[in-house]
Design a protein around this nucleic acid. Structure first.
Length: 845
RNA sequence: GCCCUCGUGGUGAAAUUGGUAGACACAAAGGACUUAAAAUCCUUGCCGCUUGCGGAGUGCCAGUUCGAGUCUGGCCGAGGGCACCA
């Protein structure tokens, strides 16, 4: 039997698709569009299994939708700005552009080997001028709309490398490369006003019915809406300041007020700039690590001032004002009123500094002598110890009532606060989109005129300088705008900006004049199905949602502001981890399995290997499998088949060599079966049995439903069932004509998963309309006979086959004659029977 | 600490609105073919008597129901997100 030569056949079809421009997308107004998008890759060098999984899932969907008659847009591009290029270039002494372009070349050819139905005419790369010139133009538009501004903000500063570090580059408070203790430094930076859209970004989540709930919850928490009020506290001090403003969600606990705490960056701190003790305290605060754990476990410390704050609801009461390390400047007003009895954090602080703890909410089962010791009470109850607030139900009634009183007295105002902060987009890096701004000698911001865009990144730069390489480009920095000498902004844009609108660019790649054409975008947008990793659940997706809103802000004629109609987040690809006796990681290539044990291959077999848990593939743990090797050994169809099998696409999948081999065998088995089917000689041309029609139509029905619901692992099981059915029942089939017409439909429903194999088979069948999804013939879904489950007292006792319209009386008659059931029913009266038509009957005795 | 999700064989997992639990595969054991191996095919899968049949069984404990993997309440365990957010 001829073996299936995937190398030849896969290449053949990939060439065919390319020549025929099979996947080229263009606007067809009479057809329903379907925009299928997977998150575009960062060109890091080679594709990894995560890419294979992501793009296979998307490709199956794109091919299926196309067969269903949708006009499909399925593009691909490169998220090609970013730090890894700068680091790699520095290491290998070449420039980021060359490094990036080489990687793109490699990865593109690898992706093509997977047989993706991508329209490569629309390929984009965010590091190309053709792309980022539009981004610079958008930046200026947003600046004109008042959605971009500049302010001072803290950054992680590495004093040795003289560079700004991203949070993930700070490890235990030290720079990842230099090991120097990271400092907080204030820099002027550009910000996008994402908080202007806080409410809308939050409320619109409800409309995203095709998004995973998990992602919506994460975004909701990230935006972090809280309802409360702002309160003005009068203060007594020698300073020229009369009041301090606080935000609180619990104004009803104001009578438990025992201190007021300020952030060390609060404007009032200016008056303490020369206070030695305060400087000491501030340094102490700076020492707290930046890791999440260290922040959470950090001790609460304060610096007591001689300022007193007056309780606005009882002006006879004064409390001390502190600076405290746990108060954040960028939330609320950088000042909190402390009520230790009903807030754990405030209680910790109060206990340390021996401040008064007065409970004002009495829990349901407690009396007036209720006391707080070590745990704050945050539950419901009745207000007490609070003069005119006493007796109010907490929290519903008491909070609203207190806000009302504060508003009447003009000392407070209802307020909704968001946790979301404005998006800082300045990066002190070379390999990013230049910000189209310069500064004149008066320090004023000057916009680069649009006609002068793009502001190109200078080439042939020296990377091995300290700090941002652009700072050292004298020729590039100096620019004359409107006859005035200016210095360019040397910061570049966060790469999340690049990915916040690339889905719009894909709609109009042929138009070089504008970032996107409104007509194109109106046809293709929104993305019907977006597919990618859950690690982008918050930032990338939120920024993209913001960016479409920002672009549409104050525009009369724009698209729907939600860019992604449907979202699917796929799981990771995992593999077992291995270590040798010295705890060095070993790659799967370096080990082999013998008699159920795993050994280090290169050594004699006496050295066994420590097998660790299965974890997401990563270079650091060496548990990666190179997709290119796998494609070369088994072919793209087998890889696609395997990566979809076993686990549902939203869950993590275990890579298994065994599973991969079995997928490869499936391709081979199927090819052999195909050869048998097409060479089968059947005399009858009249159909005797409808078994194959019934089976085929059931499968079309099942696979269609499974495709619609992303149950791709079940589809693989369905494909196994198809093979099993055909190979077992071939002998029983009498009509070749009928066999082939069913077989053709079967090949079509397999084709999204294994496009090369099925196209070759369909070709040998001379099938017409290869790109048409078969319709279910409902006639064959209607069963005439049913297996009815016979239960006695809810327990299954037998299966009996009946005609579909049998009535309950006849059914009971048959049951009584059933020998097998007689032992359960003998001498017993059937008190009741529940009959679910064509399914089940439950007899109660 | 708060929020979310999930617990089904040795493993990955299936299972319309509550209606045959374990589809489909991986691994294992036994068998067939073979001089042998590989490949292929078949059988088995928890407990009891052992053709067959009966019992238990979807993390644990209750509840609703003729009937619960599925619904409700409580508990235990795992994973993920946020993290001094006032």
């Amino acid at each position: 039997m001829e073996r299936y030569n995937f190398k030849v056949i896969e290449k053949k079809w990939q060439t065919f698709w390319e020549k025929n421009q099979t996947f080229k997308a263009s606007i067809k107004k009479d057809k329903k569009k379907f925009y299928c998008l997977e998150m575009f890759p960062y060109p890091s060098g080679k594709i990894h299994m995560g890419h294979v999984r992501n793009y296979t899932i998307g490709d199956v969907l794109a091919r299926y939708k196309s067969m269903q008659g949708f006009n499909v847009l399925h593009p691909m591009g490169w998220d090609s700005f970013g730090m890894p290029a700068e680091n790699a270039a520095r290491q290998n002494n070449l420039d980021p552009k060359t490094w990036t372009e080489e990687n793109i070349k490699t990865m593109k050819s690898q992706l093509k080997q997977l047989g993706l139905s991508v329209d490569w005419n629309r390929e984009i790369s965010t590091c190309s001028e053709d792309y980022y010139k539009h981004q610079q133009s958008f930046f200026l538009d947003l600046l004109d709309k008042g959605l971009v501004y500049r302010k001072e903000n803290y950054v992680n500063w590495d004093p040795v490398d003289e560079t700004v570090l991203a949070n993930e580059q700070v490890i235990d408070g030290k720079g990842w490369r230099s090991g120097a203790v990271v400092e907080r430094k204030k820099l002027n930076q550009w910000f996008f006003s994402i908080t202007k859209f806080s409410s809308d970004l939050l409320d619109s989540l409800e409309k995203l019915s095709k998004w995973p709930n998990k992602v919506k919850v994460m975004q909701k928490n990230w935006i972090g809406k809280s309802f409360g009020c702002e309160v003005n506290f009068d203060i007594k001090s020698s300073l020229p300041v009369k009041t301090i403003k606080c935000f609180t969600t619990r104004p009803d606990t104001l009578f438990g007020f025992s201190f007021l705490a300020l952030s060390i960056d609060h404007p009032l701190s200016d008056f303490f700039k020369k206070d030695v003790e305060f400087i000491k305290f501030k340094n102490e605060c700076g020492k707290t690590g930046t890791t999440e754990a260290s922040i959470a476990n950090a001790e609460k410390i304060g610096f007591k001032t001689n300022i007193k704050a007056i309780n606005p609801l009882d002006v006879t009461k004064e409390v001390p004002v502190y600076f405290a390390n746990f108060v954040l400047m960028d939330y609320g007003f950088g000042a909190v009123f402390g009520c230790p009895a009903h807030d754990q954090r405030d209680l910790d602080f109060a206990l340390k500094y021996k401040l008064k703890v007065l409970p004002v909410v009495c829990p349901p089962n407690e009396g007036d002598n209720f006391k707080i010791t070590k745990e704050a009470y945050t539950g419901p109850g009745k207000i007490f110890n609070s003069q005119f607030l006493n007796g109010l139900n907490c929290p519903d009634e008491s909070i609203l009532k207190t806000i009302e009183i504060l508003e009447q007295k003009k000392i407070g105002k209802q307020k909704i606060n968001f946790r979301l902060k404005d998006w800082g987009v300045s990066r002190q890096r070379y390999w990013g989109c230049p910000i189209p701004i310069a500064y004149n000698n008066r320090g004023e911001v000057v916009k680069i005129p649009k006609k002068d865009l793009p502001v190109k990144l200078p080439e042939n730069i020296k990377l091995e300088v300290k700090g941002n390489p652009l700072e050292h480009q004298k020729n590039w920095k100096e620019v004359i705008i409107n006859g005035e000498k200016c210095i360019r902004e040397t910061d570049t844009l966060d790469t999340f900006v690049d990915s916040s609108w690339y889905f719009l660019r894909f709609c109009s790649t042929e138009n070089t004049n504008v970032g996107f054409d409104l007509d194109d975008v109106k046809y293709w947008m929104p993305v019907d199905q977006y597919i990618g990793g859950v690690e982008h659940a918050i930032l990338h997706l939120l920024y993209s949602r913001f960016f479409t809103r920002a672009l549409g802000f104050n525009e009369k004629n724009f698209i729907n502001l939600e860019p992604f109609e449907g979202l699917f987040t796929q799981g990771m690809v995992c593999h077992e981890t291995y270590k040798d006796s010295k705890d060095n990681w070993l790659s799967p290539d370096e080990v082999e399995s013998k008699d159920g044990k795993i050994y280090y291959k290169k050594n004699d077999t006496s050295e066994s290997v420590k097998v660790g848990s299965s974890e997401s593939m990563s270079k650091s743990k060496k548990n990666t499998i190179d997709p290119e090797n796998i494609i070369n050994n088994y072919g793209a169809d087998a890889v696609r088949f395997f990566i979809l099998s076993d686990s549902p696409p939203e869950k993590d999948i275990q890579w298994s060599e065994q599973g991969m081999i079995s997928s490869y065998k499936f391709v081979q088995k199927f090819w052999s079966l195909h050869k048998i089917i097409i060479s089968l000689e059947l005399k009858n041309d009249i159909n005797q049995s409808e078994d194959i029609d019934i089976f085929t139509n059931q499968m079309i029905d099942k696979i269609t439903k499974n495709l619609e619901n992303f149950h791709y692992n079940v589809i693989i099981a369905n494909l196994h069932e198809i093979y099993n059915f055909l190979s077992k029942n071939l002998k029983k089939i009498d009509s070749k004509k009928n066999l082939l017409s069913n077989y053709e439909k079967i090949l079509k429903i397999i084709s999204p998963v294994m496009p090369h194999l099925t196209n070759e088979c369909l070709n040998e069948l001379n099938a017409k309309d290869r790109n048409e999804w078969p319709k279910v013939n409902k006639k064959f879904l209607k069963k005439v006979n049913f297996d009815v489950v016979i239960q006695v007292n809810g327990k299954k006792r037998d299966l009996m086959n009946f005609n579909k319209d049998i009535n309950e009386q006849d059914l009971l008659f048959e049951i009584k004659n059933n020998q097998k059931l007689s032992k359960f029913l003998k001498d017993k009266e059937i008190k009741k029977s529940i009959y679910i038509k064509n399914k089940l009957i439950n007899l109660i005795i």
